[in-house]
Each structure stands twice: as structure tokens, then as C-alpha cells.
Design a protein around this nucleic acid. Structure first.
Lengths: 219, 219
DNA sequence: TCAATAATAAAACAAACGTTCAATTAATTC
DNA sequence: GAATTAATTGAACGTTTGTTTTATTATTGA
């Protein structure tokens, strides 16, 4: 056996990336073997080395493209002529939407940093820092104009990012709340967190099903 | 060679646990081998099986004791006769202090869930859920008494936990801020997040060194 | 002092790991 | 239709993996 009928490099590579993200998100980078990944795509392990020189390079590629995608999405979304509050809303909205839509690659990007070599790690951290800088700048502008009341922009930026990224830990698209509902709630939490003036909170949803939440998470 | 002079089962076990937490926090459960762990303690790999039947059992033990410790710490700390705001402060304070003091085991407990068997995973998740319930109850009480203004207690509880647990990702005890300063800042962020009345924010620290934060995180 | 027990080493196990290489076939180009 | 290139297989490499077994020595209690 050798080349199979209908084989196509581009399709194989795309399938490999998708399978790699999915497998690594569920079992972790170290726990996923090249043979396992190959089997998922219906190919022999040796074939992977046509597309990725090493296993770590595969991981790095996935993480880099995730980060570049996140930064790219923000660059397309961000309002340039707007007040801090509006820009903060845009940032949080973009962040949540992007991450919910890419739960698996977000998981990989957040969890597998320790499996990268020194250089590759530096590269990813640089991307991450440049992204986080955007948020810190928004917070600083908000403090300056008096729109926000913030104790410490560095800590607040980390707290917000941690909070909104955490959505993917429990969010399931087919459950209780839609992405828009979740985004809206997180938006109002964020605005209050930074001491911005907020519209009235609709307290109506509260009574609905507070107890259903436990079982919801257990699954 | 066989039993070595001065060997003591209790000490060996304690050393193994400590080394295991440290190694797994840094490199991940899957990436740490039994031989590597044994070498760290100065013992042969076979000796580990006197203390832990399998590698996974070792992981499970570490995670279970971490969670039991967290719940235990909260049970000793929590004020029983107090308003929601005070209870929330106690919860956040205990959470941050406990996690900062146990950064490594927190990392393991948060990252290595996927390496547990079905049963062991269920056990840990049960502990976690029971802990999170405490926070949700505080939030619910706060909403009921009007102390808090919360959109959705379930989401808010997750947001808070995500936010405060995230401290260990960047916090280094020998850096810019002390545990108490960090805790204080996170406390005021949490209170604003739930719409509680807060004292005046001291905006004084802000101007100090906002730009030092980037380099601080890159290392 | 001697028997019992606790703690370890040393060696071995099969299985799985990431990766390389040569051979082979499908698709493409001329 | 022949030559070239693209895509893949199958086998093999040396390591490393978690774990078991057996032998050996240190410590403890009678």
C-alpha cells in the first residue's frame, strides 16, 4: 500500500488540525499520541510528518493560529472612535464570542503552554501580552476620563480576562442560556467591576431556575 | 541493595507527595514519569508502589486532599451569623489565601481532571460542586435581602470563582504586591461585581507603575 | 539474640512512544 | 503514454512508559 485514491494533502492537513485540537482539548497534549491522532483521521502515523515536523510543532502551530485569530478578530471588531465603556463592551463581547466559538482551541491554548519549548513559549506569550495590553489600555483610558473607577489596572485586566475566559469551562451552547444571554450578563458584570455607570439590571431572570444549575454542571 | 539505612515510610511518602505536586504542577501529570518522581526523592521507581497502587491513584489522592483541605478551611473560616456581604468577603478571602498558599496543588487540581477515571472524576467534581454551592447560597441570600444586585446567581458564582482562582496564574509572592493587597483589591472588585455598596476606592495606587506590569508577566 | 516486618533495590515485562526510511501507488504534467 | 511529483504505507528504530516480581537489607519487638 502507498498513496490512496482520492488522497489530498490540503484536506488531510485540515482534518489533522481539527482532530488534533479536539483530541488535545479533551485528553491533553501529552496524552494524545501521534498514532491516535492518525487513526482519528484514518491515516498512518508516518503520514503526519509530511505536515508537521514534530509533535510539538503541531501544538505550536495550533496555538499560534489561535492567538493570531483572536487578535485578528479584535482588530476587526474594535471601535476606534468610542468611549472607554463602549470599547470595553466590544472587547468583552469579542472575547466571549471568539472563545465560545472555539472552545477546543482555547482549551489547548490555555492549558498546554508548558509543553512548548522556550522559543515557542516566548512567541505565544508575546502574542498574549499584546492582546492583554489592549484591555489594559482601555482600562487606563477609562480611569483617565473618569468613566471607570479602578484600583489597579493590571490586576483588573487579569481579573476580567480570567473571568470571561472562564466561560468556556462551563458553557454548553445547547443548554440553559444562549451566547448572547451569557455575553450580556458578563458584560454587565464587567462594567460594574470597573465601576462604570450601568443601566438597570433586569432582575427578572433570577427567580427562574437557580437550582437547575447544579445538575447542569455535574454532567 | 535493598532497604537503606535511615529509611522511613512516613517520610518517604510525604516527600513523594510534595515532589509529585511540584513536578505535576510544572510539567503536567502525563509528562511526569514514575521514574522521574522517584529520582526526585532519591528512590527507585518500584518503591512508589508501596505507597500508591497506581499513578492515577497518586493523582487522585493529591486532588482529593486538596479539595478536602479547601472545604475544611472554609468551614473553619466562615462566619455563621453575618450578612451576605461579610460572608462573601470571608469566602473570597479564604479562597485567595488558600490558593495562593497552595499554588502547585491548585494547579494540579484545576488542570488534571481529565486524567482521572470516571469514578475518581465524579468524586472530585462532587467536592467541587459542594464548595461552589456555598458561594451560590451567599449570592442568593444577598439577592433576597437586597444587599446584592445580581443578574444570575449561577453565572455570577462561576465568574467570581474563575476570577479569584485566576490569581495563582500570575501571582508571585515576592513581587509587586503582597497577598493582602491582592486580596483587598479582589475583594472590592467582587463586591462591585455583585452590586454591593462599597467603601470609597483608594485610587492612589493607580499611578504607581502601570507599565511595569508587562515585563512582570513576561518572566 | 532472633524472628518478624518494613522499606527498598534490581531486574524484567510487554506495551507504547515519537520518529525515520524505503518502497509504492495515485495524481499531475508534458 | 511516459515522466514527474504528491501522498501515503508498512516496517523498523531505540527509548521510555507503568507496573510486577523477587531478593535483600534495615529496623523493630519479643
Amino acid at each position: 500500500m502507498a498513496r490512496t485514491t482520492g488522497s489530498d494533502g490540503e484536506k488531510t492537513e485540515a482534518a489533522l488540525r481539527e482532530a488534533a485540537v479536539s483530541l488535545m482539548a479533551r485528553h491533553g497534549y501529552e496524552a494524545v499520541s501521534m498514532r491516535q491522532l492518525a487513526a482519528e483521521v484514518g491515516v498512518q502515523a508516518a503520514a503526519l510528518y509530511r505536515y508537521f515536523p514534530t509533535k510539538e510543532d503541531l501544538l505550536f502551530t495550533l496555538m499560534r493560529e489561535h492567538m493570531e485569530g483572536l487578535i485578528g478578530a479584535w482588530e476587526e471588531t474594535r471601535p476606534l472612535m468610542a468611549g472607554p465603556a463602549e470599547r470595553l463592551e466590544a472587547f468583552v463581547g469579542n472575547h466571549i464570542r471568539f472563545h465560545v466559538a472555539r472552545r477546543h482551541s482555547t482549551h489547548v491554548s490555555n492549558m498546554e503552554l508548558r509543553s512548548l519549548s522556550r522559543e515557542n513559549l516566548t512567541h505565544i506569550l508575546r502574542l498574549r501580552t499584546s492582546y492583554e495590553k489592549e484591555l489594559r489600555q482601555i482600562l487606563r483610558d477609562g480611569v483617565e476620563t473618569g468613566a471607570f473607577l479602578v484600583d489597579d489596572t493590571g490586576l483588573t485586566a487579569m481579573a476580567i480576562i480570567q473571568m470571561v475566559t472562564g466561560v468556556i469551562v462551563w458553557f454548553r451552547p445547547d443548554e440553559r442560556l444562549s451566547v448572547d444571554e451569557v455575553t450580556e450578563t458578563y458584560l454587565s458584570m464587567t462594567l460594574r467591576l470597573v465601576g462604570a455607570e450601568t443601566k438597570n439590571i433586569k432582575n427578572s431572570r433570577e427567580k427562574r431556575d437557580v437550582h437547575a444549575f447544579d445538575e447542569f454542571r455535574a454532567g
